[in-house]
């Protein structure tokens, strides 16, 4: 687990970015399936600043990972070649769409552009999650060079985003109106599909690590060291899913969605620690 704690800034980045970005997926579904009053829309637009801030805090955390952040403007130099450049390029596209949407919402100028903008932001949020997963697709690290990291990140964005989206709607006094229609099913679907992808992706990577080893370390030892974090992640992700379902069913009031966000954060962060703890090379490094 020492490797995992060394990557704390990246663990925070991928956790916060997936939750914050994922919220726009749920919000997009809400705007396409529910009717809100002008007052509710104004409150939702104000509180949409929260997931945006969560994403920004994630980006700031990522900078703490760098030994020389002053050169960070060069990160797009590897576009098309480097998985990290690709990830950050998609991240920037998402950030621009998100900022445009949030600023226009705060200014009360979304009007007829609301659905188009939130839909574009949601699509870019999904792409952002996919590219966060692809960022670690290194052939020399067999535990990471699988589809499971991508499944995990999409799952985290759907589940964490469902929790954060429900929270934004709940504290805007708009969740009851939203879950009155088909958004209830959409929110539950996001949470369940997200939890399944996240837990299955994590479990398959965790179990697969046992078959990998090099001269320095055995995957079974790494998995054993990360077992505590693995079980915390699975438990928190399942409970977060349950809390989102409770919120979607109108049970638990605002507290259910707030608890869902806290559980999703804890589960995703623990899952990210497991991910980094299972780094094992085909060669002579960890």
């Amino acid at each position: 687990m020492a490797t995992a704690f060394h990557e704390l800034p990246l663990a925070l980045f991928t956790t916060l970015a997936s939750i914050g970005a994922g919220a726009f997926i749920s919000l997009a579904a809400a705007f396409f399936t529910a009717k809100f009053s002008d007052g509710q829309l104004a409150r939702i637009d104000k509180l949409t600043l929260v997931p945006a801030i969560v994403v920004v805090v994630g980006f700031i955390a990522a900078f703490f990972h760098l030994a020389n952040p002053m050169a960070a403007f060069g990160v797009f130099g590897g576009l098309g070649r480097s998985p990290m450049s690709n990830e950050l390029a998609v991240a920037m596209l998402f950030a621009v769409a998100m900022a445009t949407y949030v600023i226009m919402g705060l200014a009360g100028k979304l009007g007829g552009a609301r659905k188009g903008l939130v839909c574009a932001t949601a699509v870019l949020a999904v792409l952002f999650a996919v590219f966060m997963g692809l960022a670690y697709g290194m052939a020399t690290i067999p535990t990471w060079s699988t589809p499971w990291p991508v499944a995990q990140m999409i799952g985290y964005a759907l589940l964490g985003g469902a929790a954060m989206g429900a929270c934004v709607l709940a504290f805007s006094d708009a969740l009851d109106a939203a879950v009155d229609g088909t958004f209830k099913s959409a929110l539950i679907a996001f949470a369940v599909i997200g939890a399944v992808l996240a837990v299955a992706g994590l479990a398959l990577m965790y179990s697969g690590a046992g078959s990998v080893s090099n001269a320095f370390v055995a995957g079974t030892d790494l998995a054993a060291g990360a077992s505590g974090a693995f079980y915390v992640a699975v438990a928190c992700l399942v409970l977060a899913c349950a809390a989102v379902i409770a919120a979607a069913l109108g049970k638990g009031g605002n507290a259910a969605s707030a608890i869902a966000v806290i559980l999703a954060f804890a589960g995703i962060l623990a899952g990210r620690f497991v991910f980094y703890a299972l780094q094992i090379s085909v060669g002579i490094s960890f």
């Binding site: 030994a67 050169a71 960070a72 290194m138 085909v282 490094s285």
Partner: peptide
């Protein structure tokens, strides 16, 4: 060195443990 941000991806990817990155050396 002028271009390196010290992200450590090179050290992660190399199967020969060749690159080293630390905040002390800055790249």
């Amino acid at each position: 060195k002028a271009k390196c941000i010290g992200c450590g991806y090179c050290a992660m990817a190399c199967p020969y443990d060749a690159p080293t990155v630390s905040k002390e050396i800055g790249h």
